[in-house]
């Protein structure tokens, strides 16, 4: 679980300006290299437009999504780098029975594969559909973008951010938010007036700026409330309910059995007395 003591202004965050993305996919390649991920055999146009591979997988932690659209009668592309959002309060971490996911103070949400029992609840819980499973293996683990924690810990930038020539800025979350606000304000015609990730799922360490409305680009519409709070509102009642049920049932048991005991005593008394009286009568 994420500790309550993390200062989300200081966590390292990505600011991804999709209006500056050229679709070179340098980040995709850099990610594969740094994480030593296998290549995937794919065919073109199996996904939408030119995007390839068609979906993220155990071998692909990040991917450029392509969106075709028309502007002034011309065909245009919009790009969007898909990756783990490194949520401030990650759903994946809260549902994991063994706490294999953890939000680090540096920002990345990391996964401890030695703990994972493979229940795949994290995959069901993540609102962005990020964790992927090693379906190819007999004893599979979960794979997802690591936020390049091993690099960030040592003061380096993530591999994809380093490789990106134009669109990715990396730094403290507060600074990234400020920078994003500044860009939106100074170029209102260039930007759609929203920062995706500022409030989504309670705030994330990946922030996006776009030109198109978010849903047109394929951004998922996600609740603004941190996801763990949805389950916690029920789970926090657990100890009380446990003891409450126990106490109530014990009280009922005692009461019901007492009724029975008293009834039996009455019966016993009556049955003892009656025969004696009868004898006297005779």
């Amino acid at each position: 679980m994420s500790g309550g003591h993390i200062d989300f202004n200081k966590t390292k965050s990505f600011l991804i300006d999709t209006t500056k993305c050229t679709g070179c996919r340098g980040c995709q390649v850099a990610c594969k290299q740094w994480n030593q991920l296998k290549a995937e055999k794919t065919v073109f146009f199996s996904g939408e437009g030119y995007q390839n591979p068609p979906a993220m997988s155990e071998y692909t932690f990040t991917r450029i999504k392509f969106r075709d659209y028309q502007k002034h009668g011309q065909n245009e592309f919009a790009f969007y780098k898909e990756m783990c959002m490194h949520c401030n309060e990650p759903a994946c971490a809260s549902v994991c029975p063994v706490g294999a996911f953890k939000k680090t103070a540096e920002g990345p949400v990391v996964y401890d594969e030695k703990r994972c029992i493979g229940c795949r609840f994290c995959m069901v819980a993540c609102p962005f559909g990020i964790p992927k499973y090693e379906w190819s293996k007999a004893f599979p683990l979960v794979r997802k973008c690591t936020g390049c924690y091993s690099r960030v810990k040592e003061g380096l930038q993530p591999a994809c951010a380093t490789a990106c020539p134009t669109a990715i800025t990396y730094g403290n979350r507060a600074d990234m938010l400020q920078e994003a606000e500044r860009r939106i304000k100074s170029r209102p015609d260039r930007y759609f007036q929203a920062i995706y990730g500022k409030e989504e799922a309670g705030g994330t360490s990946v922030l996006y700026l776009t030109h198109q409305p978010l849903d047109e680009l394929g951004f998922k519409q996600v609740t603004k409330r941190p996801l763990p709070s949805y389950t916690w509102q029920a789970l926090r009642l657990v100890p009380g309910i446990f003891l409450g049920v126990g106490g109530t049932l014990s009280a009922i048991t005692w009461f019901q059995h007492r009724k029975e005991r008293i009834r039996r005593e009455e019966e016993f008394k009556n049955s003892r007395v009656k025969p004696e009286q009868k004898e006297e009568d005779q």
Binding site: V98, G99, I117, C119, E134, F139, P140
Partner: peptide
């Protein structure tokens, strides 16, 4: 059967996460 790593099922007893419904149910 459904767990990807059934041999590690015991981890539920070792690493508690009280925020997880799955932990509680297990």
């Amino acid at each position: 059967l459904d767990l990807g790593q059934p041999q590690r099922g015991i981890n539920v007893l070792l690493y508690w996460n009280v925020h997880s419904p799955m932990f509680e149910v297990s």
